[in-house]
């Protein structure tokens, strides 16, 4: 019997894989950011993986996840853990001692293999103290603009990116607008009044 993709990765990278789950044929692996390049290279080059297509790369801000509007946190109040990190009775070692403020952001990769016709979702939770991550531009060229977009809108740095500049917003724009603590009413027009 062939193993699921998640099981193969779990067995091979038990140190770096934090969590795996699958539902309705969608397979997800949550990994530690230190193992990103290692696992990405494996996903691209292993004959059973052959993920030749990085379909999507985006990020999620969990700042207000699971909160009602009235209890929406500020930066100082702790944010809840993402759904897959809710502490269980038998918490994994990496979950213990994790304060709620950590792992506010999460970078999500979607891979597709045109050879095996299978897909994989890779998630990398990021500690707010250090929002940086290895760049995948050396492995998939499509990561270039995706990572620029994530940096532009979320402010997550990708180490090793050849040209990490804003791609959607203008260069005089201040802040990262898709962060949940970016003021909803804030406008930064280049010309014209603050409408």
């Amino acid at each position: 019997m062939t193993l699921r993709l998640t099981e193969t990765i779990q067995q091979r990278f038990s140190q770096q894989v934090l969590l795996t789950h699958h539902s309705l044929g969608q397979e997800t692996v949550v990994i530690d950011r230190a193992g990103l390049l290692l696992i990405a290279e494996f996903l691209r080059d292993d004959p059973h993986m052959r993920f030749d297509f990085l379909m999507d790369l985006t990020a999620v801000d969990y700042l207000k996840f699971g909160r009602t509007l009235s209890s929406a946190p500020t930066l100082k109040t702790p944010s809840p853990l993402p759904y897959f990190m809710k502490p269980k009775p038998s918490a994994n070692p990496w979950q213990r001692g994790v304060s709620n403020d950590e792992f506010r952001f999460e970078v999500v990769y979607h891979f597709y293999s045109s050879e095996h016709n299978h897909r994989l979702r890779l998630k990398v939770p990021l500690n707010v103290a250090d929002l940086s991550l290895a760049s995948l531009t050396q492995l998939w060229a499509s990561a270039n603009w995706f990572e620029r977009e994530v940096w532009d809108l979320f402010g997550i740095t990708f180490n090793g990116h050849p040209n990490l500049r804003r791609i959607l917003m203008y260069e005089s724009f201040e802040g990262h607008p898709l962060r949940k603590d970016y003021p909803v009413r804030k406008r930064q027009p280049i010309i014209g009044p603050l409408n």
Binding site: M169, G192, N195
Partner: peptide, 17 residues
């Protein structure tokens, strides 16, 4: 008027320009 966009990116009516 900017239509249904009311966000950081959109000009709320070109008559502001």
């Amino acid at each position: 008027t900017g239509g249904f966009y009311d966000n950081y990116a959109t000009v709320m009516g070109i008559d502001t320009i």
